[in-house]
Amino acid sequence: MTPQPPENRDKDAGRWSDLSRPPLNAGALRRALLRPGTLWSALDVVPVTGSTNSDLVARAAAGELSEGAVLVAEEQSAARGRLDRRWSAPPRSGLFVSVYLTPTVPLARWGWLPLLAGVATAAALSRSAGVDTALKWPNDVLVTVDGVERKAGGILAERAADGVVLGIGLNVSLTADELPVPTAASLALAGARNLDRDPLLRAVLRSLEHWYGEWQAVDGDPAACRLQEAYAAGCATLGRQVRAELPGDRSLVGEAVALDADGRLVLATPDGVQHPVDAGDIVHLRPAAGGYA
């Protein structure tokens, strides 16, 4: 065997410095996912970037993307969630992936895309990781740790040129000490039977391709492709008392009773009025002495 130059040995040592968190195999992922007739057209894995969503949005604006482009980062230094929240995770401890889609369905139905991604991601994790998952409206993926629902992932949709960039972030192997906040979780903490990120990523992308194809085939009708039904069945928000933190420093408390045809969460307030909520932060309220906390 020919000895490696010192610089190559150093590079490999960096990639494998944490043997419990090996790097993704970009070549194997491409062979498995980039096939004729499938949605995925390109797949890149980068060691680190600020935000995979920001990168794809910029590339879409420059006309450099085709539908089905996938960008995965082993680490993100400026990852963003809804409401421009920042979060971080150790290198190779999760899945940080963005995809570029150009739906042909009516623009009014594009709001279903983050919910579709939630259904696809939850289904993939249940099958491939063996964990029970739930969805918190509109874009959080929950798992159960010690009997408590916690956020293990999130989805961010952003308009980009003629399409949408969907970002999916999942905590895979984070330990309790590595969590960004104590109320977060990871697949490892939820007792997942599989923490190998390669098959997890393949499962998520294949599930996303399936649901996206079904949704496109019926012109984005969420009832006809059973997306509305699937989301409602897996949504931990429905049937609970919640507080919706709305734009303009307003809030609304009520029971989450339905998901309407536009993907909005319908809250029934004590005065008997039903309010559709299309944007805001949802807080699941728990019974506490004297009311909810």
Rank of each mutant, 00 (worst) to 15 (best):
R82H: 06
T102W: 11
L34F: 11
A224L: 14
L135E: 00
A26N: 02
V181E: 14
P182F: 11
L34I: 12
A123Y: 01
R150K: 07
L65H: 13
D249N: 15
T175H: 14
L195M: 15
V181N: 14
A258G: 09
R35P: 10
L116H: 05
V70S: 08
P90A: 09
L29G: 01
L174Y: 04
N139L: 15
P106S: 09
P22N: 11
K11H: 09
G37N: 01
V45H: 00
R240A: 03
G234N: 15
R150C: 09
V148K: 03
G50C: 11
P22F: 01
S93G: 03
R92V: 15
L267V: 03
L39V: 07
V119C: 13
G154W: 04
R250Q: 09
D281F: 06
A161Q: 10
Y292M: 09
V283H: 05
S66N: 13
L34M: 03
L43E: 00
T52Y: 03
V131N: 02
T2K: 10
T183G: 02
G111N: 00
L65D: 01
D84T: 11
G27D: 06
W112E: 01
R240G: 12
W110Q: 10
V105P: 04
T2H: 10
P91L: 15
V57H: 04
A123H: 10
G263S: 11
A123I: 12
S98F: 06
P138V: 13
W110K: 14
G263W: 07
A279P: 05
R250V: 00
E74C: 07
Y212F: 10
D84W: 07
R240C: 06
P3Q: 08
G111P: 01
A289N: 15
V119I: 04
V99H: 02
A13I: 01
A233R: 12
G239Y: 13
G37V: 01
A293N: 06
R80N: 13
A279C: 06
G248Y: 02
R226D: 00
E178N: 13
G130K: 03
E255Y: 07
L125Y: 04
L19P: 01
E229T: 02
D196F: 14
L83H: 08
N8W: 11
R82N: 14
S251H: 06
